[in-house]
């Protein structure tokens, strides 16, 4: 049974492109709405982040509901187990349904200790697998702890995976738990290493959960460098960094520079995705490059064929 466009495409086995929206510390969602409008023609749905890095932003569910209502773009509500206990999460799942949200991505969430409200009590009552299980109980069994829900929610629930994880086997087996819990799709952390990605995707194939691979097209050399430096466990390849650096230094015309970056992203990701598709390891792509909506037409080209 499909409850959303994402659910329908998963059911039909169609190749999926999703985007990502990162609302900020503000009550004004106009920037997020603008970005959602720009990516809407190209993506099936977009994720709405939940205070990434523990840096507090506007509530993810509120932002999901408003942006979806204002733009018509289907939202994948990201919800971490960091700030809310089981009781609260169950209530939010029903609230999400009532607000028209039909997809949720279950995440652990970065520890409060990393963010800007370090003194907050870290909750982690559930974990990302048992939150998936809770959603599935609410949707499929129409109950919480065996207690009936009068009008039950209908949401598709996904989980995250990290192909860069080392030891990889520990991560692969963990995806098995998420599959057992009932995850209907997987969205991965950003990848750049093709061999590792192949090994990982082969490792989790047996669980039969559709995988949307996390990509991070880099809008500029500064962004690429920043990502390489500040995102632990993910390295941007050296040749990519030097190519992006070359674009920054060699092309002075702003418009030409933008086009060169977009083209470089296309040239890097096209063979990457083609290879994975040819090996039948992918069900879609999740683009995590926030504030770079102009890349979507190129990404559509990347995943074509």
């Amino acid at each position: 049974m499909a409850y959303s466009k994402l659910g329908e495409m998963l059911e039909k086995g169609e190749f999926i492109l999703t985007g990502e929206l990162e609302p900020e510390k503000t009550c004004d969602l106009s920037h997020t709405i603008q970005e959602a409008k720009e990516m809407a023609p190209y993506v099936v749905a977009a994720n709405m982040t939940d205070s990434p890095l523990g840096i507090v932003t506007i509530n993810s569910l509120a932002a999901s509901a408003i942006v979806q209502r204002e733009t018509g773009l289907e939202i994948i509500w990201q919800q971490t187990v960091r700030d809310v206990n089981k009781l609260g999460l169950a209530g939010m799942v029903m609230g999400a349904h009532a607000l028209g949200i039909r997809n949720v991505l279950s995440l652990t969430g970065d520890h409060t200790n990393l963010g800007d409200v370090k003194e907050a009590k870290p909750v982690f009552d559930l974990d990302s697998a048992t939150f998936v299980k809770l959603v599935r109980e609410m949707v499929d069994k129409k109950s919480i702890n065996g207690h009936e829900i009068e009008c039950p929610p209908t949401l598709h629930v996904g989980a995250a995976a990290n192909p860069n994880a080392d030891p990889m086997e520990a991560e692969i087996l963990k995806i098995g738990r998420k599959a057992e819990a009932g995850a209907e799709f997987i969205q991965t952390q950003v990848v750049y290493d093709l061999d590792r990605t192949i090994e990982f995707l082969r490792g989790i194939k047996k669980y039969g959960v559709p995988v949307l691979l996390g990509l991070f097209p880099m809008k500029s050399y500064g962004i690429a460098k920043g990502f390489d430096t500040f995102v632990p466990g993910v390295d941007v390849p050296k040749d990519v960094l030097s190519k992006w650096k070359g674009i920054k230094t060699d092309i002075t015309d702003k418009k030409a520079q933008k086009e060169a970056y977009d083209q470089a992203n296309y040239e890097f990701f096209k063979p990457f995705i083609t290879e994975l598709k040819s090996k039948n390891l992918l069900d879609g792509v999740h683009c995590m490059a926030v504030h770079y909506p102009r890349i979507f037409p190129k990404l559509v080209e990347v995943i074509k064929g």
């Binding site: 995440l107 974990d127 990290n162 994880a165 080392d166 963990k174 632990p232 466990g233």
Partner: peptide, 17 residues
């Protein structure tokens, strides 16, 4: 995080975020 089903995405090379 006192997780019952880890490791979480904060693990890098066996170390904790």
């Amino acid at each position: 995080k006192g997780l019952m089903n880890g490791p979480c995405g904060g693990m890098v090379n066996g170390k904790c975020e």
